[in-house]
């Protein structure tokens, strides 16, 4: 093979005859979390495949911290992350009866005014 790429021409293709990825040769999957500024939350950005946590961090740095600001990266094995099933999405729905959790529910101005009128309170 004669290539325009001098590096390709230097390769000894005769040495590479078995160009197949052997099955079961996958590395561990890691979920990556990115923190852009000190004081901000780490946010999930994607995954890398790596054999060790150290390697996962190096690959995560190459993949998710090439540009912009990064303060830190976290990696966690995918197998160690637990989630709800997406079918259970409805358990997070807020019902109307939960207004007691809502700051806007607490309105006292009317009551104060009535009290002041009734008792002739002036300030």
């Amino acid at each position: 093979m004669s290539s325009l790429d001098p590096r390709v021409n230097r390769l000894d293709f005769k040495k590479a005859t078995d160009g197949e990825v052997h099955t079961n040769s996958h590395l561990i999957t890691w979920e990556v979390f990115h923190q852009d500024k000190r004081g901000k939350q780490a946010v999930h950005v994607g995954i890398v495949h790596a054999s060790t946590p150290e390697m996962a961090l190096i690959l995560a740095k190459e993949q998710y911290a090439r540009r912009g600001k990064t303060t830190n990266l976290w990696v966690a094995k995918t197998s160690d992350v637990y989630t709800f099933s997406t079918h259970d999405e409805d358990i997070f729905e807020t019902t109307p009866e939960k207004t007691f959790r809502d700051p806007a529910f607490y309105k006292v101005r009317d009551r104060i005014e009535k009290f002041q009128n009734r008792n002739k309170v002036t300030i």
Partner: peptide, 16 residues
Amino acid sequence: RQALMNPSEKYQVPLA
């Protein structure tokens, strides 16, 4: 890659 591999690890599908 083979030198780095840990044969006891099972493949995990990424979460998202």
